[in-house]
Design a protein around this nucleic acid. Structure first.
Lengths: 317, 317
DNA sequence: TTCAAGACTGCAAACAGTTGCACTAAACCT
DNA sequence: AGGTTTAGTGCAACTGTTTGCAGTCTTGAA
């Protein structure tokens, strides 16, 4: 029923190996035969079976992409870009969601290992040890984390955080609250150290907080009490929640207090006020990660972030 | 280097077929041997090679999921749910993005056909004819569209639209604007016919519009001029854009005008005012679609939608 | 005691391709 | 003209599993 390489060989009067070569090494076969084979194949609707090909070559032409939460607005642009890059090179992409569980993450990598030529791990939650062990079994590139023995794509949040705080300073703010993320988060630490380096700013750290809208909402009273006139939030979700919390407290943004987010997710763009934020190059990261994987280069890259100024920041009263 | 079934067979002193059976038909092998094989396999770190298995069985244990735009907030919850359902049954999920291009869609289905046991098509853009032809080559289930020869999962937007307009009627609105979607959209037509059935409401249709924030924004003046006090928008993005556009015109929501969206995407929940909207059961649809695919049942299901009342609707002045 | 029925297990042929090697014929050198 | 290269093709083994068939060994029944 399904048309195989043998059917094509028979119908075009050549050996299967010739058919095989017209697809995987066209230069090795005479132009005339090649065209004949190609047209017969076309006519019969033949498509090489990737599973069979994988069996002999060891290359599946599949890639895995593992993220913590597909529904988190931070990831979809990355997934989309990764998919586009993969498709461009005729690779297919498995996408998987770990639900933020390290155990699931490890199991997925393991499960993928035989079925893909490589996997990109996005902000992985597992331990270094576990990841390093798994990275030996299958080529990995890691986004947003440093890992020995795997190519790395970083987005320079630190620099972005610095820009954000400098932006606030430039508007005249002197006391800035940092609404931080979860304890032990690599990103959160990066943000903090960078923010601390901005001169003439008194930084007050509020946290740790859940990296969600609720987390931001809950932090509102402490932000108000801190006496800060500007805020840098761990991410846009936190910023949005915070703005709502401040609203409930009778404080409006940016009139009473300025808020900067991080990530530049869609809901932030749609929010009112539109969120000033640090744009993370998620699409570039996704694209680059799959390119690195396919080309088997082991590099560590740091992507630039930039500040997007919108409506949630203004000069203090 | 990679450990195969033969290694396990050799190490545990049985034939490869016995090893094979301990994994794919455990009841056929003696408990003692099974345990021995299992422990040897564990020790050696053996995992069956899916590609090889696919070759003989014809089943890949992979599924494809094709959506128009991964980055559109409507899809990620669906993708996530589909992934969870697949994983639960030990299937892996290819995810692909068509960029709204019918040609890409058809090519992807074609490319997947040999590599998956089935594909779920989410709001496909291709012609019926093309889809029907492709559905013959690979089992398909279609979400949000009727298609001969393929299982179908529908979300009952019509009913949701009716609920939305009834809600507005209940609040006292008499003249309601329907800010419709693109011309020729199946969904848009469904919404309209349902909305027209609500008694005591004068419905004015404004459109067609692009199904985006911009589309909603651009429709604002016409909505104002329509004299309607309530609006049902084609989707949440349109609603959000509309609210912003109305704001620029000096009209505030819900004080001056009530707005209901459709979809219940994250940005709507985060919007201010929080959007009253028709919740589409996207997660349920994703889950159900993969279940139907795996169980090879060919049914057409209609999922219930419900109205989520938040802050963008109120009684007219 | 003999026979049939089970329960396990081994054998070997698929599955759909790829690829090193051998072979043929033509083209190229001297 | 004879030898050597080269281009093109065929042969067959191999990839890792599954599975129908056949064989062996128990076990239970008559």
């Amino acid at each position: 029923m399904t048309v195989t390489i043998r059917d094509v060989a028979r119908a075009s009067g050549v050996h299967v190996s010739t058919v095989s070569r017209t697809f995987s090494a066209p230069h090795m076969v005479n132009a005339a035969t090649r065209n004949r084979v190609l047209s017969v194949a076309e006519e019969l609707g033949y498509r090489p079976n990737r599973a069979a090909r994988a069996l002999t070559t060891g290359r599946t032409h599949n890639l895995g992409l593992i993220v913590a939460d597909i529904a988190n607005p931070f990831f979809p642009p990355l997934i989309k870009a990764a998919h586009a890059a993969a498709r461009q090179r005729d690779y297919h992409l498995f996408v998987a969601d770990t639900d933020e569980e390290p155990a699931v993450e490890e199991e997925l990598i393991q499960a993928f290992s035989k079925q893909v030529d490589g996997v990109v791990l996005c902000s992985p939650r597992s331990s270094n040890k576990a990841l390093e062990r798994l990275a030996e079994r299958v080529p990995c590139v890691v986004i947003n984390r440093r890992l020995r023995g795997a190519a790395t794509v970083l987005m320079d949040v630190g620099h972005g955080a610095k820009l954000a705080v400098e932006h606030l300073a430039g508007l005249g703010h002197r006391r800035v609250a940092l609404v931080s993320g979860p304890a032990g988060s690599w990103t959160s630490a990066e943000i903090r150290t960078a923010a601390e380096q901005v001169p003439d700013i008194e930084l007050v750290v509020i946290g740790p907080n859940a990296p969600t809208e609720r987390g931001g909402f809950a932090a509102a009273p402490r932000v108000r009490d801190s006496g800060a006139t500007g805020v840098l939030a761990y991410n846009d979700l936190v910023a949005i929640g915070l703005i709502e919390g401040l609203g409930d407290l009778g404080l409006s943004v940016p009139e009473d207090i300025s808020v900067v987010g991080i990530d530049d997710i869609v809901p932030g763009r749609l929010n009112r006020p539109k969120l000033t934020t640090v744009a993370m190059p998620t699409a570039a990261a996704g694209r680059l990660a799959v390119d690195l994987l396919i080309q088997e280069v082991s590099a560590t890259t740091s992507l630039e972030t930039r500040l997007v100024i919108r409506d949630s920041t203004a000069a203090p009263r």
